[in-house]
């Protein structure tokens, strides 16, 4: 039996559209659920005062600092490494045994559970290198964790730059590096930024790897050798221990708003960049 293509078309659109709506509905529900319960708690006082009584009362200032510093450190380490790895793989070599091994390694690293990163960071940075539970240990562990994300997305973005661009650049006498620097990276930038954003997002939301490496101290860190607590960890502790559901929701809402702000900034930067070039 053959169903007319027009009907399969309609069926497909209905199913795909339904799946999309369901997905969006679930995701919107989660955001609304958290913001609705959390936003009333969030104000400047909440953001700028320290937690008291293990977080039962007071604000989240120190965890805000932790949440800014840890992902920042991770990106500073991982972004240059990841972008240059991707550029090397796509622009500088042909498919060889070595690139296959590198790709395999990257894919494997991407699949490593965060708890393994946590165990590793604990054994390597915290214990073996003697960095203790610190911002440094946590940031470096997170850098390891987001490296594959940045490599993969950069690779995709670089691959998406049309071949003809490179041909034109080479035919004008540009070297490979000049081509990469002036043609490929600028064209791939939106994709690269997406990768960096995904990396920041993953580090902000990470709990398992952070608890084992950066600890969960509520004190204000005075150096990168101090332990810190991120908002995600704070939320986890507040919510699970039932310390204060009010402050827990407030923390979660702040977290979501922070991520929203980061994303908007990135898109604004991207927009300005595109406008400048055209």
């Amino acid at each position: 039996m053959r169903i007319h293509p027009r009907y399969t078309q309609r069926l497909a659109v209905t199913i795909l559209g339904g799946a999309t709506l369901l997905t969006l509905a679930v995701l919107v529900f989660i955001i609304v659920f958290v913001l609705e319960k959390g936003l009333p708690v969030v104000n400047f006082r909440f953001l700028l005062t320290n937690a008291e009584d293990m977080g039962r009362s007071g604000g989240i200032f120190t965890t805000l600092i932790g949440t800014i510093v840890l992902p920042l450190l991770a990106i500073i380490v991982a972004a240059p490494l990841g972008i240059s790895t991707a550029v090397y793989l796509t622009e500088y070599t042909l498919e060889t045994k070595v690139t296959k091994i590198i790709r395999f390694g990257t894919d494997c690293l991407a699949g490593i559970p965060s708890i393994i990163f946590g165990l590793f960071g604990f054994i390597f940075f915290v214990t073996t290198l003697g960095l203790g539970w610190s911002i440094l240990s946590g940031g470096l562990t997170l850098a390891f964790m987001i490296l594959p994300t940045i490599i993969r997305t950069t690779e995709e973005a670089v691959k998406a730059v049309p071949k003809s661009y490179r041909q034109v650049s080479f035919s004008l006498g540009a070297t490979r590096w000049q081509t990469v620097k002036r043609i490929i990276l600028p064209n791939a930038l939106p994709g690269i930024l997406t990768g960096i954003m995904l990396g920041i997002g993953r580090s902000i939301g990470e709990t398992a790897a952070v608890i084992f490496t950066a600890g969960s101290s509520l004190r204000l860190p005075t150096s990168i050798f101090d332990s810190t607590r991120t908002m995600a960890v704070h939320f986890y502790i507040l919510a699970r221990e039932g310390l204060s559901s009010e402050n827990a929701y407030g923390t979660a809402a702040t977290l979501i708003i922070a991520v929203l702000a980061i994303n908007l900034t990135a898109y604004w930067m991207m927009g300005r960049f595109i406008a400048k070039r055209s």
């Binding site: 240059p80 240059s84 790895t85 500088y92 390694g105 990257t106 494997c108 165990l119 590793f120």
Partner: peptide, 25 residues
């Protein structure tokens, strides 16, 4: 090219380092 080639091994080195330490424990 040389610098990029070295950094290209960052991910695989990270993986090996992790494997080494977890297996060792």
């Amino acid at each position: 090219r040389r610098i990029l080639a070295v950094t290209a091994f960052s991910a695989i080195s990270a993986l090996l380092l992790i494997a080494l330490f977890i297996l060792n424990e």
